[in-house]
Design a protein around this nucleic acid. Sequence first.
DNA 1: TTGTAGGCGTTATCAT
DNA 2: ATGATAACGCCTACAA
Lengths: 339, 339
Amino acid sequence: MDQVTIKDVARVAEVSPSTVSRVISDSSQISSETKERVRAVMDSLGYHPNAIARSLVNQRCNSIGLVMARPTDRALANPFFNDIIQGIAAVTQQENFSLMLTSADSYESETREALNLLKKRQVEGLILMASRTSGEIITTLVRENYPFVLVGRSQEHKEIPRVDNNNIKAVKETVRELIAKGYSNIAFLSGPKDYVVCQDRLQGYREALAEAGLVFRPELISYAEFSYEAGIKKAHNLLARGQQQIDLIFGADDLLALGALRAAEARGWKVPDDIGIIGFNDTPAASLVNPGLTTVKIPIKEMGERAARMLISIIEDHKYQGEEVIIPTEIVWRDSVLL
Amino acid sequence: MDQVTIKDVARVAEVSPSTVSRVISDSSQISSETKERVRAVMDSLGYHPNAIARSLVNQRCNSIGLVMARPTDRALANPFFNDIIQGIAAVTQQENFSLMLTSADSYESETREALNLLKKRQVEGLILMASRTSGEIITTLVRENYPFVLVGRSQEHKEIPRVDNNNIKAVKETVRELIAKGYSNIAFLSGPKDYVVCQDRLQGYREALAEAGLVFRPELISYAEFSYEAGIKKAHNLLARGQQQIDLIFGADDLLALGALRAAEARGWKVPDDIGIIGFNDTPAASLVNPGLTTVKIPIKEMGERAARMLISIIEDHKYQGEEVIIPTEIVWRDSVLL
DNA sequence: TTGTAGGCGTTATCAT
DNA sequence: ATGATAACGCCTACAA
């Protein structure tokens, strides 16, 4: 159980520790015979370089941390969790980085944890999921010049490395298509006002309306908490206006749209015949529901990949210019709107 | 950006590095005046102990790794992902451990990665999610005497530390209740035969039938891949037998049950009036669907907590007895069965 | 092509 | 109560 070190290998192979070290890094200045011999010894002894020791001398630990705003933004973040990690992990593995997770029951303690990881030198950089409160940690990160990448958008900070999708554009184009399909009384069921994503999506909606020469009707906007129940409730309020006032509900999130689906059903409105419903995010549930929920899909895994790649290159190059990557979204047409 | 070390603190505070070290560990043999003074210096210099260096001398890195069988068992594992991590992370944070994630596109490379983490001494132990192929890595882990905990069950290995739910018992009791409610022609829509969970759940079903004196009818058992589509298809086959042959479908997983729901709907069967449907796992979608899916819920977060706690205690105590924790499940009654 | 020595930041042992 | 010194396992000048 106790560790085989470079010295053990050296002794058995009858070379010096430095030679072994050079074999590990496949140095060109070692004869192939010694290399072979040393490698054979490494195998037979079951030697594995101690990552901690290497980190200490190299001053590089080759690992990054992921900070999810799970507690506060749970409803929103949940569906992302899997995919974003998949993406990040794919590239970290490929680039020989390790991935550490921070977690806590409050966003404050979570970011405190993450910052600590950085200061203790356990990770070399951070990937942050944008949230209502990520502004402050970003300020710290920028001030202390730590490598990081933001997934999403921050109101407070503009010139930072980030990967995101364009919510304004996505909704605008979707609504444009909806209008082209004949919808004209489109309601917007938003999440809480203080989420940037909600603001952006609402703005996309307004821009599309303006573009089509449709008047913006504030009474068709409703704000709900990010919950299924809240979605149902607020959708009911919207639906209560009657069929000639409203022919489609655009949910700022699938959960909300799913709530709207349920509310319409409860009132005996047929979807998509009596009313169209569309969501955002392409939650797994969107395809499991009947009728299937048409929704805007964000390639989250790809965002994770890009974020990880970006962070690693920042770490390695030490250059830190506020480059942004915007990932295009895609409409997934299912059965909840008329085609 | 360059690191403040214990030596810097020592110099400024005009003490020796060892004194600083003792202040860090709050040693009782340091006068409170020096402690205060040193702490003040640490603050003013922004000193943070280097975790890597500590790990090197302590021969303890205080971190564990999580191995998910994501690629192969995606459908099954997905819903667990979030919650299990929540649970694990809660404990690791509380116990001052770090959590590392391994990930890869094949289970082989994922476990290879994980094993590597162990050998490189980057983690002190592993939490494994049981899967079809986790047998081999467990063999290795046991042979090389590495600390680990299994979440789930392994066919090949009996006496290992693990946390699980009792699938046999859960289904048995659920079916018992279903029978008490008047169901007597219960079909079982299983996942692939080679999953232990499926075998166990099927056995629970059989035991409940036997207990109630109902005959086991093989034609009411169907095996599907773990996908919604497969669930729909196989449910159709079952449903084709007609209403007097079948009054409930028990899905070995929510995804399958959701497929059954859809199939029943497609045939114009009313749920729960014409047929009852029940699932397992309590996927988020189960509550978003109409009618809401009755299902068996596993407290996954709690399993994560227990697993993490168990692993840490194994690491610290170096004792390794195959203790098991079985977490009780719970039926979540919704609208897809008659009450 | 290989070996020697010093150091990465910390802790533990042995002095004082 | 505090300091000097030697590790922990590895890497990298500098030497040979």
